[in-house]
Each structure stands twice: as C-alpha cells, then as structure tokens.
C-alpha cells in the first residue's frame, strides 16, 4: 500500500493550479484525497505530480445571494451537512456520506470530479439542476449537471480544468429529500433517490427527481416526474409515480456482491416513494 513515486506542489491560487496541471503531462489535483489517495496506494493511479488545492481559501465555503447558493469546490461534506443555506436534499445527502472522517475530508469538487457511480452528490446535483463552474486555460465556463456526468468515473471536464464552485437555486417554498440504501461495507449508495417538489393549489409543481448508485451515472427520473407533475400528492399518486422509476433506470443497472441488479431494480420504486413522500412533507 505504498504509492509509486510522485512530486507534490501546493497551489496558492486556482490560476496556479490550472497552470501547474495543464503544463504537466501526468498531473492530478488533490482535494480531500479520499478517493485519490486510496487509488494511489493501490497503484490504480500513478500520477507524477500532485497539485494540492487544499490551501486555496477562495474554493471554500457556502454563500447565498439572489436566490442562488454557491458552494466552493473545496467545501467539505461536513460543512454541507451542517448548512441551512443549502437545499435540504443536499445537506441531508451530505450527512449520509461515508462516516465522520470521510465527511470531514471529502469535498464537493473531488466527489463530482471523481464521478463514482455510487456517490451521492451527482444524484443530488442532477435533481437540483446545478451549474458546475470550472476554470481552465481557456477561461471559465458553467456546465449543467445533466451534461457534466458522462459515464462511470467520466465527466465532461477538459484536460486541466478545475471545478471552482457549484451553484444551485436556493430552496424557498419547495421541499426536498434524499433517500439512500447503503452498501454495508463502503457506505456508498447502492441506490439513492433525490427529490425536490413544490406544492401549489394542492398539486405537485416543479418536481425534480434523480436516482444514482445503481446506474453508470446518476440519471434524471423523467418518467417519475411526468407521472406526478400536476397531480395531488398522496400515497396513491406517489406510489404510482414511483413505480415509473424502473423505466428511468433503464437496462444498465449495476450489480455487486451486496446488491444484484435485479434487487436494485426491484426496490427502487419504494425508495423513490420514500424520497417523494419526505420531500412532499417538507414542501410548504
């Protein structure tokens, strides 16, 4: 469990980090290290240079203005879990990540850049319609969450691009919730469902639902949304809509020693129903 040889630099600014990584053929950014360092130790990753983002203050913290919440890429899950500014679905999911050590070290940027299919944040960000702000040699851009996640461990980040922050709309009258089935060993998600909903005139409005943990990348649950949008929210309508998640998950469902694909597919409707019910209960 000793990594192969690498150099290390501590970047003082985003610009320096961009410059260091883009000018080097085999560099990797280091944030909380909770995915990268295990990969180094198992020699699954063998970069020549680590560019540590850890001291860049500009990348840390949560701020809210004009109906938008901005979360710095280096913000830890523990900070997100304790935040009242974030939509409930995010703080709730953050509180269910790993264990206290993982939440104290793991960061928002590292989590989504790694794009582990079992992660919780991609699901949440897709449900919230997040914008992922990145900076590279060619300048800055914002990538919608739906387009950011491409496949297993694959994102639409270009070489040398660094995630700087993630923006989501602040929650006002909506209610949101995250429901997770844990892998008992890793504590990652076997299945996670994120839901956000507003209720107006007694019916469901602005429903956004996403699922992750069971598919190569988190997915938006369009079928569930369509089945419930404009409907009154009760057990019957929720159960009915939740059943549509099977179609959203599609054919490519993952299986492992703790949870086969068939099992994940079968329990998904109940997990979705729980997320929807909890979100509805929180909506005002």
């Amino acid at each position: 469990m000793y990594p192969s040889k690498f150099d290390y630099v501590r970047a003082q600014s985003v610009e320096e980090a961009v410059e260091r990584t883009s000018s080097h053929s085999n560099a990797k950014l280091l944030a909380g290290g909770h995915s990268l360092i295990p990969a180094l130790k198992l020699r699954l990753a063998q970069p020549d240079l680590l560019v540590d983002l850890g001291r860049i203050a500009a990348l840390k913290g949560i701020s809210r203005h004009n109906g938008t919440v901005s979360v710095g890429a280096l913000t830890t899950h523990a900070t997100c879990a304790a935040s009242d500014d974030l939509p409930k679905v995010w703080s709730e999911a953050a509180g269910l990540i790993g264990d206290p050590q993982v939440r104290n070290r793991g960061t928002v940027g590292g989590n989504i850049a790694h794009a582990d299919p079992a992660s919780d944040l991609p699901t949440v960000l897709i449900a919230l319609g997040a914008q992922i702000h990145v900076q590279g040699t060619a300048g800055s851009r914002a990538i919608p969450a739906d387009e950011f996640f491409v496949d297993l461990f694959t994102t639409s980040l270009e070489e040398g691009e660094i995630i700087t922050r993630v923006e989501v709309p602040a929650e006002s009258n909506q209610g949101s919730a995250y429901t997770k089935v844990f892998n008992p060993a890793s504590r990652y998600a076997i299945l996670g469902v994120a839901a956000q909903v507003a209720i107006a005139g007694g019916v469901c409005r602005q429903l956004r639902v996403a699922a992750g943990g069971s598919t190569p990348k988190a997915i938006r649950a369009h079928h569930v949304e369509a089945a419930l949008q404009g409907q009154p929210l009760n057990d019957t309508t929720i159960q009915h809509a939740a059943a549509a998640i099977a179609e959203d998950l599609g054919e490519e469902v993952i299986g492992d020693m703790y949870a086969s694909a068939a099992y994940r597919r079968s329990i998904a409707a109940q997990i979705a129903a729980r997320a929807l019910s909890a979100a509805a209960a929180r909506a005002r």
């Binding site: 264990d99 892998n183 008992p184 060993a185 890793s186 504590r187 020693m257």
Partner: peptide, 26 residues
Amino acid sequence: ALWEYGAYDESGQLLSGTFMDYAMPR
C-alpha cells in the same frame, strides 16, 4: 450475523478483499 463474509469466487479470487467490500460492523 448481518454483514461479514469472506467470499471467494470459483476461481479462488477473494471477492471481499478490501473494506469497500468486506462489511465490518460500525
């Protein structure tokens, strides 16, 4: 009772050879 299992596949590979797969009580 609930989680731990040192599981091998037929070829003799240990399937639960890391803490990501071998579930310790928490």
